[in-house]
Design a binder for these strands. Structure first.
Length: 269
DNA sequence: CGTTATGTTCGATG
DNA sequence: GCATCGAACATAAC
């Protein structure tokens, strides 16, 4: 699930329910998820810390826990956060459980264990260390800066959009929607895009991400709530283009797939 | 059983 | 050193 819109939704659920609370305990259910850090050591650092704020950057969600530093979460391919009340209701695939007082628990779920959590000194240092580019929705990222960074790459535009060091937050799913909305074929080379294409790409990137957040990214019903003209509900084999009704194509992109409309997104060459 | 999967990292190569 | 590409990782669902 988690690309920028899904992580933003996690944050919006977390902030009102968890901020201001103290960590009364943690249960490390899988050490791999915290890079093998010792549960006892983590407990010593985290216990009693107050969740003060959260800052999303791209697909990462660092949480300010005061003196103890920041706890940075990444959700991998299918991680998520879930609140629950009774400890017995510990959901499946819970890898780390935060206890935030009696009958208030926060679970970091991750079936595939691709994803991690880490105690860091602060959010900015973390973002720098990871080499992340500007957040795709952060207001300070303007169209000119975006165009400059994208056009500096020679790779295929889909892969550039998903490169977290160029812009942070976009993954395989939303890159398909953004390219579809912008009318650009995923295999176009980034450095060959002209000005109007780059401007379109920027505008559609922000519009798609904002729309996904508004329509409840990650929920079962999001696909039904998306505006007409969105590719995502048709992003599957046998899908039809919402614009021209033609067949949606699936391309292989080094091990993963890209869905696009061959007519609305003319192929390069 | 084969295929597919919303992500990052690492090794090889140019 | 940098950019790029593909494999590897771990597990579930169809």
């Amino acid at each position: 699930m988690p690309e920028l819109p899904e992580v933003e939704i996690f944050k919006r659920r977390l902030d009102p329910t968890a901020l201001g609370r103290r960590i009364s305990g943690i249960a490390v259910r899988d050490k791999r998820i915290v890079g093998g850090a010792s549960p006892a050591g983590l407990m010593a650092r985290l216990k009693g810390a107050r969740l003060a704020a959260s800052r999303r950057h791209g697909k990462y969600l660092p949480i300010d826990i005061g003196e103890a530093g920041w706890f940075a979460m990444h959700f991998g391919m299918n991680g998520s956060l879930q609140h629950f009340r009774a400890e017995d209701d510990d959901p499946p695939y819970d890898r780390l459980r935060f206890d935030l007082g009696r009958d208030h628990h926060l679970a970091y779920l991750n079936p595939r264990r691709l994803g991690r959590m880490e105690l860091v000194t602060d959010a900015e240092a973390f973002v720098r260390r990871e080499g992340l580019g500007a957040d795709a929705l952060y207001p300070a990222l303007g169209p000119a800066e975006f165009a400059r960074r994208v056009a500096a790459r020679k790779r295929e535009i889909k892969s550039v959009l998903m490169d977290q060091t160029v812009v942070a937050g976009i993954g395989n799913i939303y890159s398909d929607e953004i390219l579809f909305q912008a009318g650009l074929h995923p295999r176009l080379r980034a450095n060959r895009l002209d000005r109007p294409a780059l401007a379109r790409l920027f505008a559609k990137m922000q519009a798609v991400l904002r729309t996904a957040i508004r329509r409840g990214a990650g929920s079962e019903q999001m696909l039904d709530r998306l505006p007409r003209g969105f590719l995502l509900p048709q992003r599957k084999k046998g899908g039809r283009c919402p614009r021209c009704k033609g067949a949606i194509a699936m391309l292989k992109f080094s091990g993963r797939s890209a869905y696009c409309c061959p007519r609305c997104q003319p192929s390069p060459r």
